[in-house]
């Protein structure tokens, strides 16, 4: 009963969808041998390297694994900081 109520109010996903989402993550890791931990390390390295050349906001950097069919992609979204010259 509590289960039903929480599902109604919290918009709890059904287990079929949960399975799909969990599988998406597991399969990417299985296929690439690349873990979430390694992704975090890569993100830190990437931020350090890019920051040496251009101003970025480290907290808004997003890096994730994506797949189209059986092809995996590494997607990085790195917003630049507003140039100070323009602000003046």
């Amino acid at each position: 009963m509590t289960n039903l109520i929480s599902r109604l109010f919290k918009n709890n996903p059904r287990s079929g969808k949960v399975a799909k989402e969990r599988l998406q993550m597991v399969l990417i890791h299985d296929r690439t041998n690349f873990t979430n931990n390694m992704l975090e390390l890569l993100k830190d390295d990437l931020i350090a390297t890019i920051s040496r050349h251009i101003d970025i906001d480290p907290s808004s950097v997003k890096i994730e694994m994506n797949s189209t069919g059986r092809q995996q992609r590494l997607i990085a979204d790195i917003p630049l900081k507003q140039s100070k010259r323009k602000l003046r």
Partner: peptide, 20 residues
């Protein structure tokens, strides 16, 4: 019946994940 209730991973989701 389980697919209808959303408690079994859907066929199109399996095909999308395995991509064959």
């Amino acid at each position: 019946a389980m697919i209808r209730r959303g408690e079994m991973i859907a066929i199109e989701d399996i095909v999308e994940l395995l991509a064959i």
